[in-house]
């Protein structure tokens, strides 16, 4: 039995090596593995053997089958090379010309989708605003520097009797007031919009974008602000990043914080890019009770928190673009835009 199989194998090897055409090869394959082929016949004989012999024969049969099939396939490929059509898959690709969405659009999409997951609703409010919404209702004193001509753009239009001078909103925080006046708690808002300030240099452009979060409900505390910012930071920058709050000051929040995120370059050890292992993201705080009252929300029942950060800055911190001058973001040079 064993010898029979070895013979079949040796004979086949000799035949395959002599083959000259694909047809001839196919005939050898059929003679071996076809319904009444030599191999098939031999394999049927196994059933008459005893246990141990049966097992031995099985192993040999399998081995012979694998060897022969591989030989036939290799031979087939050898024969084909001479007859196949010429094709050059190394030709350079002709790529599809895709357009490009602006960096700010990409950032807004990413940011809003993170906040939507934890129940925030994206809203939008006017860019051309009134003093009341941008400052007054946000607890800015009358002579606060932000209300100066030096920091905020004012529109050459008559003042509103009720809302004061017309201006270009210098922050998305004006949206807090509009949101609280137009809806009741619970509020979870994310307002992403253009803002304007009278400043132009390598790190400031008179037009920029902010995203503003506002939560107002019963029992909202600093712990919730930390939770929300931590959720955002881990979703946006990566799960290994940590946040920290530092004491800060804003007119419309009390307490107020500056938010930092751990540096991903040095992993918090401190390097050239960061301050002792931390990078500054932006401001946050607990909504000032006067602001709640200005919006007809009872500060004895409700409390809230808010944060407002620069879209460009936050996105640049993540992307690793290292843009040397923020004005480049608002360039129309395709060579710049295509990299952002």
């Amino acid at each position: 039995m064993k010898e029979d199989i070895i013979n079949i194998k040796n004979q086949a090897i000799a035949q395959i090596s002599d083959v000259k055409s694909l047809d001839e090869l196919e005939q050898i394959r059929i003679d071996l593995f076809g319904r009444s082929g030599k191999y098939k016949v031999a394999s049927k004989e196994i059933k008459d053997l005893k246990n141990e012999e049966k097992r031995q024969a099985g192993i040999i049969l399998n081995e012979v089958k694998n060897t022969l099939e591989e030989l036939i396939q290799n031979k087939k490929n050898d024969l084909k090379i001479d007859t196949r059509e010429w094709f050059d898959p190394t030709m350079p690709a002709k790529k599809i010309k895709l357009g490009r969405l602006h960096m700010v659009t990409q950032a807004i999409d990413e940011i809003s989708s993170i906040f939507e997951k934890i129940g925030f609703t994206r809203v939008k409010y006017p860019e051309v605003e009134y003093d009341y919404y941008a400052f007054g209702a946000l607890n800015f004193p009358d002579n606060h520097p932000a209300r100066d001509d030096w920091e905020t753009f004012f529109v050459d239009a008559p003042d509103s009797a009720k809302y004061g001078p017309m201006l270009l909103t210098p922050h998305t925080s004006s949206g807090q007031i509009r949101e609280m006046l137009s809806s009741k708690p619970p509020i979870r808002m994310i307002n992403i919009a253009k803002c304007y300030r009278r400043q132009i240099d390598a790190s400031h452009y008179p037009m920029f974008h902010q995203f503003e979060g506002l939560v107002v409900d019963k029992n909202i505390s600093i712990v919730n602000l930390r939770g929300t910012i931590d959720y955002f930071a881990k979703s946006f920058f990566g799960k290994n990043r940590e946040i920290r709050l530092r004491p800060y000051h804003f007119q419309f929040t009390e307490p107020s914080f500056e938010v930092d995120i751990s540096c991903n370059v040095c992993n918090g050890k401190g390097c050239k890019l960061c301050k002792e292992g931390w990078l500054e993201i932006g401001g946050a705080g607990m909504v000032h009770p006067k602001v709640l009252e200005n919006c007809k929300i009872d500060s004895k029942i409700y409390s809230g928190f808010a944060f407002g950060w620069g879209v460009e800055r936050t996105y640049m911190m993540k992307s690793g673009l290292s843009i040397p001058d923020i004005r480049l973001i608002y360039s129309s040079d395709l060579r710049v835009l295509e990299q952002l």
């Binding site: 809806s183 509020i187 979870r188 409900d217 029992n219 919730n224 930390r226 910012i229 920290r244 709050l245």
Partner: peptide, 15 residues
């Protein structure tokens, strides 16, 4: 110490 405070998302209902 703000760093000693825990991080917790809001518990109330989603608007």
């Amino acid at each position: 110490g703000y760093h000693n405070l825990p991080c917790k998302l809001m518990e109330g209902v989603i608007p």
